[in-house]
Amino acid sequence: MTAVDPAAMSGLELLRLAGTLPESERPPGIGSLLGMEIDEVEEGRVVFSLRPRPEFANPLGTVHGGIPSTLLDSAMACAVHTTLPAGAGYTSLELKVNFVRTIRLDEELLLGEGTVIHVGGRTATAEGRVTDATGRLLAHGTTTCMLFR
């Protein structure tokens, strides 16, 4: 594979490319650590998925809240990233998560969808949802990202 310069690609191009790479060619990061997959990418919207595993447990034996929070943070921030041109960056300024249901370790699949609400000159906002494989809402949230143009 030819070396890719991420700074030369728009956010949409970069995420589309990342979604096609085999696991062995992906750079290390939180997605690799948690086993997240990029399922859908379009301008202003991204869907990630992951399969819960025993390492995600909290002391009560259910999925730790950091897992759906990370899924939401990634999906919402990457949705913002899809709207940015080459060379632009972002960082999360604020993350708000609402947990709706207990997430069991034996859930088949968790889906995290992020959708852009607004992109301005210096900040962007997005909303997100975490659902199970049947579409049942498990958590939802919002984010504000600072943009670096």
Rank of each mutant, 00 (worst) to 15 (best):
T20W: 01
I38E: 00
L95H: 14
V46G: 06
R122V: 08
G61D: 07
L105Y: 12
L105T: 10
V119R: 08
G128S: 04
Y90W: 15
G87C: 10
L17W: 15
G61V: 04
R53S: 14
M76L: 07
E108V: 04
T2R: 14
L111A: 00
T70N: 05
H118F: 06
R101P: 12
P54M: 09
A8G: 04
P68G: 08
T115C: 06
L17E: 11
A57P: 14
G29K: 00
N98W: 00
M1T: 11
L110E: 02
G66C: 01
P59R: 09
M1V: 09
L105H: 13
P6Q: 12
C145H: 06
A75M: 01
E127L: 05
L111M: 02
E37F: 06
N98V: 00
G61R: 04
T70M: 07
G120R: 03
L137C: 11
C145L: 03
I30M: 15
R136H: 08
R122W: 04
H64M: 09
G114E: 03
D5H: 08
E113C: 05
G66F: 01
V119K: 03
L71R: 05
G87K: 09
N98G: 00
S10A: 10
T2W: 05
A124H: 02
G114A: 05
G19W: 05
A79G: 10
V47K: 01
P54A: 14
L105V: 12
T20G: 03
T134V: 00
G128F: 05
S49L: 01
A79K: 07
G44W: 01
F56E: 11
M146C: 01
A75G: 00
V63A: 10
V80F: 11
P68D: 09
L72P: 13
G29Y: 00
E107K: 02
G35S: 10
S24T: 15
N98Q: 02
T62A: 15
H81R: 15
R51L: 06
G128L: 04
V4S: 05
G19E: 07
G121F: 05
E43V: 12
L138T: 06
P6Y: 13
